[in-house]
């Protein structure tokens, strides 16, 4: 019997497989497909304080083994989330992590403070890739100082554990990870999407109305594995790896690179029950390879 459980210190997960923010809606969209309690947990779509309209379409373009999106964090805001959605998730026996957004440091803190009053949230995942309206659209993830300030500000008000989700669109991801850890983040998740662009050559226009979008899917997996490896070696808090995971084999690469848990994103669009399959395949792989506890594999890559 393989032990799939993961102890992040601040949170115990039934399995190392979580569904990633922005690819799992508010969780409810996936209820028709399988029992969500099988998951290690799932991360709610990025939540700002107020409802957000999102970007003008077209918002999606498929590229070889990838998907570029510019959804623009369309969302319901904290009030509707807490009144209408969270109660429907309350009966679930799995970790519910809320992805927290903000247009500036204050908004991140306001979202966290608001959510503090509600039961049923296991952790916050701080989405520091949101454009900061006061700093010309630069996001906190782009430098260690802004990351430190944002994480610190939320840490001071938050009553649940904090995970910081890093952007790959930086020069030195390790320095950003260390800044998040220094500011009190209890875990690091990475990577968010890679900034990308596609052009329709017939009409000579960008495929996305927003011009740029975030690339996800199998195309980005090797970049993500490399960054998880680098960050996991540098920080002492647990790392949650993601970026193009479509199979148990993909998940194992991240775990071996140093991830204590993984998030599955874009694959949920293609196969709504893919997380369940990955969990079962992980179990089978571990059995076949004589691995009793999946967490024994964390960071086991031989260099």
């Amino acid at each position: 019997m393989v032990d799939l459980s993961v102890d992040l210190g601040f949170l115990k997960l039934k399995s190392p497989v979580l569904a990633a923010s922005g690819t799992f809606g508010y969780g409810l969209e996936f209820k028709p497909f399988y029992d969500l309690n099988a998951l290690g947990g799932f991360v709610i779509k990025g939540l700002y304080f107020s409802p957000r309209e999102g970007n003008k379409p077209p918002r999606l373009v498929e590229t070889p083994c990838g998907l570029i999106n510019s959804i623009g964090l369309q969302g319901v805001g904290v009030e509707k989330f807490c009144q209408e959605i969270l109660p429907q998730l309350a009966q679930l026996d799995t970790a519910i992590i809320v992805n927290v957004c903000g247009e500036d440091e204050d908004e991140y803190a306001r979202v966290a403070e608001y959510l503090n009053h509600y039961e049923g949230i296991s952790a916050f995942e701080l989405n520091i890739s949101c454009p900061n309206v006061r700093e010309g659209g630069r996001c906190p993830a782009q430098n260690p100082e802004a990351t430190y300030r944002t994480v610190k500000k939320v840490k001071e008000v938050s009553s649940v554990p904090l995970i910081t989700k890093l952007s790959p669109n930086v020069t030195d991801i390790v320095s950003v990870a260390l800044a998040a850890q220094e500011a009190g983040s209890q875990a690091i998740s990475l990577i968010n999407t890679i900034l990308a662009m596609a052009i329709d050559i017939e009409n000579r226009r960008p495929r996305l109305n927003n011009i740029f979008g975030g690339l996800s899917g199998p195309a980005i997996k090797p970049v993500a594995v490399r960054m998880v490896f680098q960050v996991a070696r540098a920080v002492s808090v647990p790392v949650i790896g993601m970026g193009g995971i479509f199979s148990a084999e993909d998940a194992l690469e991240f775990i071996m690179a140093g991830a204590s848990a993984v998030q599955v994103g874009t694959a949920n669009f293609v196969d709504p029950d893919v997380c369940l399959k990955i969990i079962n395949d992980l179990k089978n792989w571990a059995e076949q390879h004589g691995v009793e506890k999946i967490s024994n594999l964390v960071g086991c890559v031989k260099i």
Binding site: G22, T23, F24, G25, E29, F30, P32, K45, G54, P57, P58, R59, L60, V61, E62, L67, N69, I71, Q74, N268, F269, V270, P272
Partner: peptide
């Protein structure tokens, strides 16, 4: 008609 990511409401890609 629209380009769709998932078809069941999770990706928010097909809005109008």
């Amino acid at each position: 008609e629209s380009i769709m990511g998932c078809g069941f409401g999770a990706c928010f890609g097909c809005v109008r």
